[in-house]
Design a protein around this nucleic acid. Structure first.
Lengths: 258, 258
DNA sequence: TGACAGCGTTCGCAAAGCGAACATTCATTC
DNA sequence: GAATGAATGTTCGCTTTGCGAACGCTGTCA
């Protein structure tokens, strides 16, 4: 028996297996057993059992020594999306406002020190998309979505989350001091919206507004676009559009139980 | 030791835990422990360990005695979607064609005797949507998507899959005999598209065409609309649109590795 | 060709988790 | 509101599972 007492209510094998499933992300679409083991911080044999179990359950596919996710993982997300009526209550609202604003609109929340994209509108002839989808993670510190989410937390909590998060430098204009980032967060909290310029991708401005009500788990909506010739007019138009979208989502109680 | 030899490479605890995660679907957004146990066919104590582990890992939330999925499950799907570049290579194509056709377009594949929706275009002023999303399951036997998917399999295999699947009667016009359904499947295989009328929902016609190449795992694209005044003209227009969409997806090799 | 490094796989033993049995809560009936 | 019963949540001793050191295999460099 080790000093760290193990909770008898928790299945450690299951937790380790879940960790295997979670190591597959955008950067590493397929991996060897050894790589999975390294990424998940587990023994190779342990990772192997987890992976083989996932293969048997149909969530992983094995091509030679490479393992990759199968479409069946979508079923897990599908349960959540259907339970919360995303198809009916969230997606149509995002799409309609995106159409009116002629820009892609994203709904997001916090997850493990990063921004988790919950849903994304689609617009057919908009500017280039990043290729992010629901379930994608984006950085917290240098995006308008991330800062607006932090603004939805009490100040100390926001500072704590930011302290845990990575703050890589994406562009020359990325703020790197937690202090100055928190200033911007405070500003966003006060004015009820957040703007960022060129901190994640050069020349791109990000816009975000809160969707959740004060005190709830923060949820935000946002969009991003290349800086145009009339930044102030663009900002006013887009923020107004986002506010309308957020208000409608609130009224539909579309995101109250997240 | 029981007669049934257990594979030492498979972690049964992990498999059981996964089963717990998978019981959450559209019909039952939140459940008690006992209900989870019943649904997953496990002992209550076993289901409890699985559920508590999922709570600790952040995939389930516990409100009193009710358990429900958290948005974090989206991360699992996000790994798959990003790995396969859905945001870049699939979704834009679907959206563009949906816009041109003025109708919602869906991409689907087979999963466990049902149709698994992989992606769905969005159209802002279309007719009422069912509220299905990526990760949703729809019936196999009475949808054009399902029949076109069966048509992508060798005949005996299609018959085997259909034999395992449930064939509930959705409308008065639902075919109930596996034999007559397989006839329609054969027809779809021959003509390269599938039409269904009022078998899933009264008054609604479904359209589907194959996307995958022969021999690959079947993938199909489809759409559905209320029957209009000129069914033949509608069918021609929509099938042509779907064919174009499918051709473009094939050319982009967007779905070759599923 | 030998040495090495990285990978997948095996097997004895410790510990993890199964489930019968025990609490506890909730719903009904008198 | 006490008594009954059913359904749910939790504990703990016994067995089984799965941990990881050790092994063998495969490709790579000198």
């Amino acid at each position: 028996m080790t000093a760290a007492e193990q909770d008898r209510n928790i299945s450690s094998s299951f937790a380790k297996g879940l960790a295997v499933l979670a190591v597959f992300d955008a950067e590493t679409p397929s991996m060897t057993l050894a790589e999975i083991a390294r990424r998940s911080g587990q023994d190779r044999a342990t990772a192997r059992r987890g992976a083989l179990t996932l293969v048997q359950a149909g969530y992983l596919r094995q091509d030679g020594r490479m393992l990759s996710l199968t479409p069946r993982v979508l079923v897990l997300a599908g349960g959540f999306l259907q339970a919360n009526q995303f198809g009916r209550r969230v997606q149509p609202v995002l799409n309609r406002h995106a159409r009116q604003m002629q820009i892609e609109v994203t709904l997001a929340m916090l997850d493990q020190g990063r921004v988790l994209l919950l849903a994304q509108s689609t617009v057919d002839h908009g500017h280039i998309t990043y290729g992010f989808t629901a379930g994608s993670h984006i950085p917290l510190a240098h995006t308008s979505l991330g800062r607006m989410l932090l603004a939805g937390l009490p100040e100390e909590e926001a500072a704590a989350v930011l302290a845990e998060a990575e703050i890589p430098r994406h562009t020359g204009q990325s703020l790197t001091e937690p202090g100055s980032i928190l200033e911007r967060v405070a500003q966003a909290r006060q004015q009820g919206y957040c703007l960022t310029d060129s901190e994640f991708e050069a020349g791109i401005t990000g816009y975000a507004v809160p969707v959740s009500r004060p005190g709830q788990t923060p949820i935000v909506a946002g969009c991003s676009a290349p800086r145009g010739s009339q930044p102030e007019a663009d900002a006013e138009r887009l923020l107004r559009g986002l506010q309308l979208c957020a208000a409608e989502l609130r009224q539909a109680e579309a995101v109250d139980h997240l």
